[in-house]
Computed example of a mutant assay.
Amino acid sequence: MNAVHKRRTIATLLALALPAFASVHAWGDIGHRIVAELAWRQLDPTAKAEIQRLLGETGSADPLPDIASWPDRLRDDPATKALGKATGPLHYMDFVDGKCHYVPARDCADGKCVVGGLEKYVAILGDRHKSQAERAEALKFVVHFVGDVHQPLHAGNRDDKGGNDYQVQFDGKGTNLHSVWDSKMLYTRDLKWPAYADRLAAQGPVQLPKPQAPLDNPYAQWAEESCAIVATDGFYPDSHTIDDAYVAKQLPVAETRLREAGKRLADLLNKTLD
Score class of each variant (00 low, 15 high):
Asn2Arg: 03
Asn2Leu: 02
Val4His: 03
His5Asn: 08
His5Met: 08
Arg7His: 13
Arg7Tyr: 08
Thr9Val: 10
Leu16Gly: 03
Ala17Ile: 08
Leu18Met: 11
Pro19Thr: 09
Pro19Lys: 05
Val24Phe: 11
Val24Cys: 11
Trp27Phe: 15
Ile30Leu: 14
Arg33Gly: 12
Ile34Ala: 13
Val35Ala: 12
Leu38Arg: 13
Trp40Asp: 05
Trp40Ile: 04
Trp40Phe: 00
Arg41Thr: 02
Gln42Glu: 14
Thr46Lys: 14
Ala47Phe: 09
Ala47Asn: 07
Lys48Ile: 00
Glu50Trp: 11
Ile51Asp: 13
Ile51Val: 15
Gln52His: 11
Leu54Met: 02
Leu55Val: 08
Leu55Glu: 00
Thr58Tyr: 09
Ala61Pro: 04
Pro63Asn: 03
Leu64Gly: 13
Leu64Arg: 14
Pro65Val: 12
Asp66Glu: 15
Ala68Gln: 13
Arg75Gly: 07
Arg75Leu: 12
Asp76Arg: 09
Asp77Pro: 08
Asp77Ile: 13
Pro78Ser: 10
Pro78Arg: 09
Gly84Pro: 10
Gly84Met: 11
Lys85His: 14
Gly88Ser: 12
Gly88Asp: 10
His91Met: 01
Met93Cys: 08
Gly98Trp: 01
Lys99Ser: 12
His101Thr: 15
Tyr102Pro: 02
Pro104Asp: 06
Ala105Leu: 06
Ala105Lys: 09
Asp107Arg: 05
Cys108Arg: 05
Ala109Leu: 15
Cys113Gln: 01
Cys113Phe: 06
Val114Phe: 06
Val114Ser: 09
Leu118His: 00
Glu119Pro: 03
Lys120Gly: 06
Val122Leu: 10
Ala123Ile: 00
Ala123Pro: 00
Ala123Gln: 03
Ile124Lys: 03
Asp127Cys: 08
Arg128Cys: 09
Lys130Asn: 04
Ala138Leu: 06
Phe141Glu: 06
Val143Phe: 02
His144Glu: 07
Val149Asn: 01
Leu153Glu: 06
Gly156Phe: 01
Arg158Pro: 00
Asp159Met: 05
Asp160Lys: 05
Lys161Glu: 14
Lys161Ser: 12
Gly163Cys: 07
Asn164Phe: 04
Asn164Ala: 13
Lys173Gly: 00
Gly174Ile: 01
Asn176Glu: 04
Trp181Ala: 03
Asp182Ser: 15
Lys184Asp: 13
Thr188Pro: 04
Asp190Ser: 15
Leu191Gln: 12
Leu191Ala: 07
Lys192Ser: 11
Pro194Leu: 08
Ala195Asp: 10
Ala195Arg: 13
Tyr196His: 11
Leu200Ala: 10
Ala202Lys: 14
Ala202Glu: 13
Asn217Gln: 11
Pro218His: 06
Pro218Cys: 05
Trp222Leu: 09
Ala223His: 04
Glu225Arg: 15
Cys227Glu: 00
Val230Cys: 02
Ala231Arg: 08
Ala231Asn: 11
Ala231Glu: 07
Thr232Ile: 07
Phe235Pro: 00
Tyr236Asn: 01
Pro237Trp: 01
Pro237Gln: 05
His240Trp: 03
Thr241Asp: 11
Asp244Leu: 12
Asp244Ala: 14
Ala245Thr: 08
Val247Ser: 05
Gln250Tyr: 14
Leu251Ile: 01
Ala254His: 07
Arg257Asn: 04
Lys263Ile: 11
Arg264Cys: 04
Arg264Ala: 02
Leu269Met: 10
Thr272Leu: 11
Leu273Cys: 07
Leu273Asn: 05
